[in-house]
Amino acid sequence: MNIFKKATIALALSASILSVGGSAFASTTSTTTAPTASKPSCSTDFSQAKSLVLSELNNRVTTLQSLAKDVGNAKYLTSNDSSALSSEITSELSGINGLIANVNGATTCTELRLNAYSMVFTYRVYLVMAPKTHLTISADAITSISNELYNLEPEIQAAINAASANGKNVAQAQSAFADFQTQVSSAQSASNGMDQTLLAQTPAGSPGNWNIFVSSKNSLESARGELHQARNDLTTIVKSLGIG
């Protein structure tokens, strides 16, 4: 699903909110301007509109808590990137919880709209924070794994040389090793510096920064495939040299 389909769904959900609580949230999906004055329909269904906003806020809390857990469990996330993501997630959680308190105390549709607007545009939990977190974790993992595989290259070449010195045919191993080096080098290049690019993305930059997330995802997906291929190459080398 691309961002345009996403926008279509957003508009559809706006329509459903419209039917429940008036046009309270319509403006938050299609413009970047502050919401307009309350409509009578919101006043009529105020409690339902309030419940809907609270539900959306609580869903974001759940997502942010899950993101915090993912950051904590990420083995290859650098300490700097981990700190940066944790700080942002904590800040967003604090902000969203503040909105929950605001909405719980809201008595007018205008208040609901203002808080709903902030929920979407100030925090961008789904369109910025989630992909930013998971892509950064993936980028750091690819950097770490590709560097580790790169550091194995002298040992691999030494094993091939030793086998060759013993009269073993190492053509298959040498060929696999050449591909191994190509795959690892490409994966290293793909993830190099990507964490900084991702961490620089902000809610204010959305939806304009969506293409950065898409292109980063595509690059990392390719790099992931390259690392899998490098693993396959190394399997070939180990088997052909009989050093397993």
């Binding site: 996403k6 369109l127 989630a130 998971h134 690819i142 959305s206 992931r224």
Partner: peptide, 22 residues
């Protein structure tokens, strides 16, 4: 690589099928 696959799976989900930010 298994660990990488898991994080990439989540990233793919975020980008290809994001939840409604509206």
């Amino acid at each position: 690589l298994n660990s990488l696959d898991q994080s990439m799976s989540q990233a793919n989900q975020d980008v290809t099928n994001p939840q409604g930010d509206n």
